[in-house]
C-alpha cells in the first residue's frame, strides 16, 4: 500500500491517479471518514490496508481546536496515519503538488 499524505488541495488525489492503479483500489481522503466518527478510526485500519493507495489530509498542525469532536478527530486521523505509515511500503508527502517520498521499503 502506498500512503499519500499532505495538506488539503496539495495534489494528493491527482498524484494517486498517476500511480497505475484502478480508482477502485484507491481510498481517497480517508480523514473524511474519521471525522464522521473518530471512535471508529482504529477499526478502519484493516479495510484501508486492503487498498493499493490511500490518501489522507494532514490535519494535526495549527492551533489545537477548542471543539472536542475536532480535537478527537484530529488525533484519530494522526494516529491512523502513523499506523498506515508503519504498514505502507511507501509513504509520500505532497508539498505544493510535489511528491516527496518519506518512506520507501524498496530502497
Amino acid at each position: 500500500m502506498i500512503l499519500i499524505i499532505g495538506g488539503a488541495n496539495s495534489g494528493k488525489g491527482d498524484y494517486a491517479k498517476t500511480l497505475g492503479f484502478p480508482e477502485s483500489e484507491i481510498a481517497f481522503n480517508i480523514h473524511e471518514l474519521v471525522f464522521q466518527n473518530p471512535d471508529f478510526a482504529p477499526g478502519l485500519l484493516e479495510s484501508f490496508l486492503k487498498n493499493s493507495v490511500v490518501t489522507c489530509d494532514e490535519v494535526g498542525s495549527g492551533v489545537i481546536p477548542a471543539n472536542r469532536h475536532e480535537r478527537a478527530a484530529r488525533e484519530a486521523t494522526g494516529r491512523l496515519c502513523v499506523l498506515l505509515a508503519q504498514k505502507a511500503e511507501r509513504v509520500v508527502r505532497m508539498v505544493a503538488g510535489i511528491p516527496i517520498t518519506i518512506k520507501n521499503c524498496k530502497l
Binding site: 494532514e58 494535526g60 498542525s61 495549527g62 489545537i64 484530529r74 484519530a76 494522526g78 502513523v82
Partner: peptide
C-alpha cells in the same frame, strides 16, 4: 516538532 498525533 510536528502536528498532533504524529508520533513525537
Amino acid at each position: 516538532t510536528g502536528g498532533s498525533a504524529n508520533g513525537k
